[in-house]
Design a protein around this nucleic acid. Structure first.
Lengths: 336, 336
DNA sequence: GCATACGATGTTATCGATAACATATGTCAT
DNA sequence: ATGACATATGTTATCGATAACATCGTATGC
């Protein structure tokens, strides 16, 4: 069924049907009502492929995330989806599964469908996507981390500064034998930034870094369970395990409890991200709090901005920071 | 940049370029190589919108899930994405946020883009989507739950039977004062099926159902934390809280631990779904294990089947069951 | 040696909505 | 009353790739 069919049935032209479906076009109210009624009755769904080809407006933006199974990303996706919905745009989601090659494939696949904007989660990218993105002439937004060399717009926070702040606070609490537990092969991921932040904070306090790693990104609770042994093998005198993420920290805590070690009495543990589990776990987990929804909303606002100043090539890259604050909880509480 | 431009540069026709990009078309190897080289150099990305309009093959399937932040759904999405990737199709994901109205909107939005198949997570649907789906003449697959009245294909398991099996096992362990903690307003959701399964198991053992609810779907860890009070308010003699999901169960356990109650000594707790946390938590949580990846793979296989027997309207609806097995762990262990 | 087949490529029409332009009717100010 | 202008609608061309058909040259079989 095409617009033509609807039009013929009403004795009008397809163009009028098309206009009746756009809220701003000039159509007589009676005509519009008749069109909408016919469409409803016939269950007609316009072919957006044809519409997009003709108008060169695809009506969607694409977001690529490394993992769906992550409360932060899903919150960002939800917030961005809502922001775009308000602008009559759809959000299409791609899952890179922490794989750069797959990310590159997805960028190509999405660009072929002509998104009006693309949002990348800014771990390192395959260099081949850069020329594709610049040729596409659409807003590109990198979210979550602050990349060393931004492609265009950025919304996020500095993982490095955030972790540095957390570790500095913990050192301030009197901890010094702090061992970092991160992911293996984390080059150019947010894990690497956090590790760097840890090292800086330790160095600032005149302490030598104590680094361990386990599993590949994303770190899981199971990695944490195994991770405690790794940490103790390398640094038996550890008094606090600073983990790259909350699920990892939860796994470490579970491993301690299985050994009958009190947390924080015998071993303190910190995480990163303020996942729900960090608040609910017993003990509650010290972490860094991030407003994932805010990142999505800011990204939506940037897309809105970019469309206003359209036509002439994007003039200025926008960069917005969201807060990332240390959040000390029971898992690192000092006795007394 | 269009195919035309590539073609002109090579002194050939656009059609040859088009053919060079399809793996099965007959093009001289030398020509194909030249085309691919030119495309690579120029960074040309074919306009799939035009391609789809012309060939009436959009090259993607759509999946709607109620939540991204759920390890099961994300695993299903991942597995289905891989299965489709092998068939040269892309998977586009929509998030209904447990909202039927939003689901209906998304169905319409996706159908406008002419997906070649659509996968729904089978909670109750807005009835208005049914005529749209049937007019679309594409495979429709409902996953996860077994709907009372399937639209077409189904891949899943019976939440009702699975919960009944779990509760029966727990009764077999000697528990009788089992209180169910589910979500409010769960009509026609998988939560309702699980509740029903609980009631059946209790009835079969001659026990009266003890029902409580808290929060709206999806149940969170925080709901569980508050839920313990609700349960104890209604049924103070409860010896086991059977939760509609693992995160809820984890919250209940955390609440017990905050009170200083031993789990399972003072209170036993069960969940549903075998999320990672159910294995890692201390104590590990009794639950029902589901192979979410299998659901995605089966769905992919059904799409493959449907495409083979295409052209003539889908002949038979396929229905596949995946296992859902009770998994007794420490959180419901009997003393001794 | 000739007909048939097939492999490689070109040409034309088409997918369905919409932009751009054209037309008709009515309204208002001078 | 009449031109200027807005409103409502129709007509035609277009977006870019591809299906369908056409063409041409060469290999193959008898």
């Amino acid at each position: 069924m095409r617009m033509q069919d609807i039009a013929r049935r009403l004795g009008i032209s397809a163009m009028t049907v098309s206009r009746a479906l756009k809220s701003d076009a000039s159509v007589a109210p009676a005509t519009r009502a008749a069109v909408l009624k016919a469409i409803e009755e016939l269950g007609y769904v316009p072919n957006q492929i044809a519409g997009s080809l003709s108008s060169s407006r695809s009506g969607f933006a694409a977001i690529l995330v490394p993992s769906l199974n992550n409360p932060h990303f899903s919150e960002t996706v939800l917030a961005l989806g809502n922001a775009l919905h308000d602008r009559n745009m759809q959000l299409l989601i791609g899952n890179t599964d922490y794989d750069r090659h797959r990310e590159a494939e997805l960028v190509r696949a999405f660009l072929a469908r002509k998104p009006e904007a693309i949002i990348l989660t800014s771990d390192g990218h395959d260099p081949r996507i850069l020329p594709m993105l610049s040729k596409a002439k659409i807003p590109v937004i990198e979210i979550w981390d602050l990349p060393a060399r931004p492609i265009q717009h950025v919304v996020g926070f500095s993982n490095q500064l955030a972790m540095r702040g957390l570790i500095a606070s913990l050192i301030g609490e009197g901890y010094s034998r702090i061992t970092y537990l991160g992911e293996a092969d984390d080059a150019e991921t947010r894990g690497a930034s956090r590790r760097l932040g840890y090292c800086e904070a330790m160095a600032a306090a005149g302490l030598a870094p104590r680094l361990c790693s386990i599993g590949r990104p994303p770190a899981t609770m199971s990695d944490g369970e195994r991770g405690l042994d790794t940490v103790l093998g390398a640094y038996p005198d550890t008094e606090l395990v600073a983990c790259v993420s909350d699920p990892l920290a939860f796994g470490v805590i579970a491993a301690c409890q299985r050994r009958g070690w009190a947390v924080p009495g015998r071993m303190a543990v910190s995480g990163f991200g303020d996942f729900e589990i960090a608040r609910i776990a017993v003990p509650a987990i010290t972490t860094v709090q991030i407003d994932a929804g805010q990142i999505g909303r800011e990204a939506g606002a940037i897309i809105g901005e970019a469309f206003k100043t359209r036509r002439d090539a994007m003039p200025t890259a926008i960069s917005r920071l969201v807060p990332a604050l240390p959040c000390l909880r029971a898992s690192t509480a000092r006795p007394g």
